[in-house]
Design a protein around this nucleic acid. Structure first.
Length: 355
DNA sequence: ATAGGTCAAGCGAGG
DNA sequence: CCTCGCTTGACCTAT
């Protein structure tokens, strides 16, 4: 298996000033401080700084043997409100993105992206669909500027995101929107199972989308628990595996419940104080902490991951979605030193050879 | 310098 | 009707 993480590197983002300061690909601005003047120069500055730091991220990743990374959507902030070529720094931005892309190719890194839950191609609100299309095209253009050929290798991963009580009808509408995307964007688009019983399971994605237009499916372990739809984990993983083209590694998402993590931490904490769980009610402060933990949604991600990822002997890519980001990957390697297999090491050598 | 509140986009669950 | 949670910290204002 190959492990990656999403969007933010805690180590670099929080780097103290005396060690060189913050490195981040997520600089942005608040609407109120920008929109009244529509200062594209300011936006371009931020985008250029983000793109420049992306290369620093990739170097850090490479030093830590992490070759799978999700690029955050905000690398070009507000990108759906203008054309990339409108930015005064367009040339410099292109160069910085291409440098990052070149580095990724030379070192065998896979870069992906995951536009947010506001990209809803099946929405009944026409304006939502229009804005979704523009934004998806921007994501695709950024990968173009990095020099990537359109492929699911560099996937643009979205959810269907709303079923409106009618899975089939919404799927038809969604596909109409999908068909309006550019060839390049469609060649990158991948769909992921939702984290709600009322939305789309892996099986539904397969039947209503993959069968019809053939895009691959990202299997998300955590989301699958909320809508198994009659498939156990292995069956769903397999069904998703079938949707990936033979020359592109399957990509999956892995996360664990924040609730469980915090409950374990809490129990450990009170045990250290010599208390038992049923005594907690007698201490108002402890009871309040416990109450807040119980309120955490089951969909929320933990800081770290603790279980060994169940790959069933298969070899594929896994984006770890954990709040501690790259630290969660390093921690996972620490507790399961043999989890990343020989298969992956062989692939690493292939990458090195072709580079 | 830092703490705390706030922030673009859609949807559905839960209180 | 409000808050949370999701791809996310970063921005902004007040101290």
């Amino acid at each position: 298996m190959r492990l990656g993480y999403a969007c933010t590197n805690m180590t670099l983002t929080n780097r103290p000033k005396k060690l060189g300061g913050r490195i981040t690909t997520s600089r942005t601005l608040r609407q109120a401080s920008w929109q009244p003047t529509w200062d594209l120069h300011r936006v371009g500055e931020l985008a250029l700084a983000n793109a420049t730091d992306l290369l620093e991220y990739l170097k850090w990743n490479d030093e830590h043997r992490i070759t799978l990374f999700r690029v955050g959507s905000e690398i070009v902030p507000w990108h759906d409100h203008f054309e990339l070529t409108d930015l005064p720094q367009y040339e410099e931005l292109s160069e910085a993105l291409m440098k990052a892309g070149d580095y990724a190719r030379e070192h065998g890194h896979r870069l992906t992206t995951h536009p947010g839950p506001f990209h809803v191609l099946g929405s009944p609100t026409q304006d939502v669909v229009e804005r979704s299309i523009v934004s998806l095209e921007r994501h695709s253009e950024v990968f173009d500027l990095m020099g990537f050929e359109p492929s699911h290798e560099n996937k643009i991963n979205i959810h269907i995101g709303g079923a409106y009580g009618n899975h089939e009808g919404t799927a038809v509408r969604w596909i109409e929107g999908y068909n309006r995307l550019s060839d390049a964007c469609r060649a990158r688009l991948v769909i992921e199972n939702d984290d709600k019983n009322s939305m789309y399971s892996v099986r539904m994605l397969y039947d209503l989308f993959h069968r019809v237009v053939g895009m691959p499916i990202t299997f998300d372990y955590h989301h699958h628990m909320f809508h198994p739809d009659g498939l156990d984990e292995y069956e769903a993983l397999q069904m998703a595996a079938d949707t990936w083209p033979s020359d592109v590694r399957q990509c999956t998402h892995y996360s664990e419940c924040r609730t469980h993590e915090k409950q374990r931490d809490f129990e450990e904490m009170i045990q250290k104080q010599g208390l038992s769980l049923n005594e907690v009610q007698e201490w108002p402060e402890l009871a309040k902490i416990k109450h807040n933990i119980d309120k955490i949604r089951k969909q929320a991600h933990s800081d770290y991951i603790y279980d060994e990822i169940r790959t069933y002997g298969m070899d594929f890519d896994i984006v770890v979605e954990a709040k501690a980001k790259e630290l969660a990957v390093l921690h996972y390697r620490h507790i399961y030193p043999k989890s990343e297999t020989k298969v992956y090491n062989e692939r690493q050598r292939e990458y090195t050879k072709t580079a």
